[in-house]
Design a protein around this nucleic acid. Sequence first.
DNA 1: CCATTAATAGGCG
DNA 2: CGCCTATTAATGG
Length: 216
Amino acid sequence: MHSELNCIGRSVLFNNMSIAEKEKLLTTSSHRQYYAKGALIRQPNDQFNGLLIIDQGLTKAYQVAENGKEKILYVLKSGDVSGQQYLFTKHTNLTMYLEALEDTWVCSIQYNDFQDLLRKDPAISLALLNNFGNMIVGFEEQNVRRDLLDAEDRVMDYFKQQCIQNETDQFILPLKKKELAGYLGITPETLSRKMKALEDKQRIKVDGKQITVFVE
DNA sequence: CCATTAATAGGCG
DNA sequence: CGCCTATTAATGG
């Protein structure tokens, strides 16, 4: 099922590399670390500062404020990469957590190795740039959603986005509704009501955590 | 089972 | 719409 080449090949960062190049990566990366659902994959001051690839599973990235509240930054799925931020900053004490939403396997690459790779391989640098670009676009979309749309449109927009990502008209909510509400910048109560409203309008169908979106 | 947490419902500013 | 509170549902040990 899992080959080590597969593991890093799954990521958009590396899927254009030659076999030989991937094999070079393999010598310096750790493979298929297992994390049970609910386990913390990364936490502040854990000394893991490498690049991380979700091989299989689902992960939430969040930060914790002084008042103890969690803010979801994004959800990482199979093939997604995390930790590039640290390429550009020495602030290793960003209070970010990565937590497995389901049983998850991750691969990682130490930074020194990755930086070596960047110097040697322009294609990787380009892929990294694109990856950053996509992340920025994602954050922008999220900001627009939060600042310009009302609550109901925010919810609907998020659902549509999920469908586009999954390339189907239905998906499973990766987060608790409480968490999703925080992510969208609304209260859980409002989310609950808006989802019901959207269901009444026949724009979505809700079955537990499974959401079906009806396209116009 | 029970206890805790999550989700929904209703009221109010 | 958010905040507060009450009730119900879901979760996990």
